[in-house]
Nucleic acid binder design. Sequence first.
DNA 1: CGCCAGGCCGTGT
DNA 2: ACACGGCATGGC
Length: 234
Amino acid sequence: MRRLHRLEPEHRLRRMHDHLAEAYGPQHWWPAEAPFEVVLGAYLTQNTAWIAVERSLANLRAAGALTIEGIRALPLGELRRLIQPSGFITRKAPALKAFVAMLDAEFGSSLDILAATPTAALRRRLLALPGVGPETADAILLYALGHPVPVADEYLARIAERHRLIEVPNGSRRYDALADLTRRAFAADPTQSQARLFNEFHALTVVVGKAHCRRTALCEGCPLAVDLRFASSF
DNA sequence: CGCCAGGCCGTGT
DNA sequence: ACACGGCATGGC
């Protein structure tokens, strides 16, 4: 007879992804957006509701500033005014200027050239920018530049904690522990499809997190509350 | 009204 | 190394 064995955390997380993908369907985050618009969204959505980001992006669109040239040409004060709806303007406006300044100075003002940089070096360069932490760097890498990197967030942390996938550390190791877990969950897939899986998985964690894993509520009716702990084989 | 949002950074211990 | 508060605004 086959002995039941515990599923590794990464296998449980993969099952959660498959379960969520079937239940919620494709999220098509940033499906047909121009890559630079994705970059703008990645900055503007930091600790900010997406509806507010859409208002800022609409302002930028009306000002013809959804492009590298547009952001470069905007006076800082004007940029601050346009992105006001999504908040943190004293941080986000200079941060966007700094991103364009980096493109101009080091990458021929080209996102394609930026994207051609090897993933590890590119991630380090993004992290060195003001206003870019691990999640924004990885969101840009994955959603704007097409690199196969996982994007972690607090929703994934809550899922991992409440479903006891791993012991989630605090502090600086927190993000990397969740990203590593996600990497292991999709390690068996071919590289080019990993990008698609990371893309979809991050969007799904946000959706399920918003619906069921709020800070002040437990997982009532959580779609992840199925028995994922044991299996006869894997 | 209070809580939260697709985080990051400076400061204090 | 980690905890904590500020950053700005708007939706629900």
